[in-house]
Simulated assay, not measured.
Amino acid sequence: MTTSPTARSRGSRPGTGLPVGRIGLWAFILLTVLFFLAPLYVMIVTSLKTMDEVRLSSIFALPMHPTFEAWRFAWSEACTGIECHGLQSGFWNSVRITVPSVAVSVLLGAISGYALSYWKPRGGEILFALLMVGAFIPYQLFIYPLAFAFAKTGLANTLLAVVMVHVFFGLPIVTLIFRNYYAGLPHELVKAAQIDGAGFWRIFRSIILPLSRPILVVAVILQTTGVWNDFLFGLIFGGTNNQPMTVQLNALVSAQFGEKPYNVHMAATILTALIPLAIYLASGRWFVRGIAAGAVKG
């Protein structure tokens, strides 16, 4: 029996019927998954080992006697500089920084994107262009002026200063995301609501927000990841009493002398990355849907 030209054109091997292209695709996906999961696997198994096991066994070997002692030590006793209270204080500082930063930037970005998409205010295009310029200028250029301004206003070394900086630098890209998403929604909905007498805020609250769930998830994940993983802003503007978890993690890893407690370091790193990872896993379906719906429109 001869193979049809159609089968050959689809990439099947003669006599097998196996799609070579699909096998190659799955092989690539598998290798990619292994590439990204291998470091996570090493971190998890190392964090569950004692230091005797870390010294004597392979980094890929499973722990013979799993223990969470390294996790407990990293959370409550590890030294982050001169303080030996673990990462727990940095964790709650990161929470106090991330929650208002994400909430304010996402809310303002949604309102700005809605206004620029539907209401076309005078000077809106100029404002949008300025936002885009601000989004792509390296933020390192603004560190000294911001530090000087916060020092003059008494906001230096406060959580409020860190939150304000994250809102300033997150707002342009969040506005762009919302504007692109709203540009793909049917404008007839807003026009019909205007005919019925609904105003700016009523339309936003009753029509736009209920349709914004996918893009809200995208904006929240992007902002949460950026704010939670930030090191530079927390180090410069937070002061010693308001250091986020990433700053304390750096101090924990770099302040060790002699033998490195790799199990504690791995546990501390996983604890630091746990919140963004949990948020993404809990809302990944909406994230993919929002990216596909809005991020490629303009």
Rank of each mutant, 00 (worst) to 15 (best):
S101V: 09
N93K: 06
M1D: 06
I177H: 06
T98S: 13
I29L: 15
F150Y: 14
E53H: 05
I23D: 02
R10L: 15
Q88K: 13
S283P: 00
A193C: 03
A161G: 07
P214Q: 03
P210E: 01
Q243E: 10
N229M: 10
G90C: 03
L116R: 07
A38C: 14
T158W: 05
G234W: 03
V167H: 06
W75C: 01
I23F: 04
V102L: 01
I236S: 03
A251P: 00
Y280N: 09
L146V: 11
T175P: 05
E125T: 15
L56W: 07
D196V: 08
A161K: 07
F204A: 12
V162W: 01
G24T: 04
L108Y: 02
A278K: 11
G154T: 05
R22F: 07
G11R: 09
G154H: 04
A129H: 09
A193D: 07
I111W: 08
R10C: 02
G184Q: 10
W286C: 00
S57Q: 15
H85E: 12
A282L: 15
W119N: 10
L131E: 02
L25G: 10
P19N: 09
A129M: 15
H187E: 13
M245N: 07
H187F: 12
Q256I: 15
M43D: 01
G170T: 04
G284Y: 14
S105K: 10
L40E: 07
L25W: 07
F233H: 11
V163T: 14
G15A: 07
I111R: 04
G15F: 05
Y182S: 11
T32F: 14
A251S: 12
W75K: 00
G197E: 05
F68A: 14
L281F: 12
G154V: 09
N250Y: 00
V162H: 04
E259G: 12
T246K: 09
P145V: 11
L185E: 09
Y262A: 13
G154Y: 06
A61F: 00
R213K: 15
F257K: 13
F150I: 11
Q256R: 14
A273C: 13
S94T: 10
G24P: 04
L30P: 05
L232G: 01
Q256C: 09
A273R: 00
N263E: 08
A149F: 08
H265T: 12
P276C: 09
Q140G: 14
K297M: 05
D230C: 13
V247I: 09
R10I: 12
G90Y: 02
A78R: 05
H187D: 12
G298R: 13
I29Y: 02
T2S: 07
E53R: 11
S4E: 01
L277R: 06
T50Y: 00
G123C: 10
T46H: 02
L171R: 09
F148S: 14
L40K: 03
P244G: 08
V45P: 03
P214I: 08
L127S: 13
I221T: 13
V102K: 02
V165T: 14
S212F: 03
L232S: 08
L56R: 15
A273E: 03
T67R: 03
G24S: 05
F68K: 00
E77A: 13
S254H: 04
G258K: 11
V54L: 06
A110H: 06
L25A: 11
I208W: 03
I126E: 03
W92N: 06
G86E: 08
F168M: 14
K260A: 15
R289A: 12
R96D: 01
F35T: 11
I215T: 08
P19V: 03
T153L: 12
N157E: 10
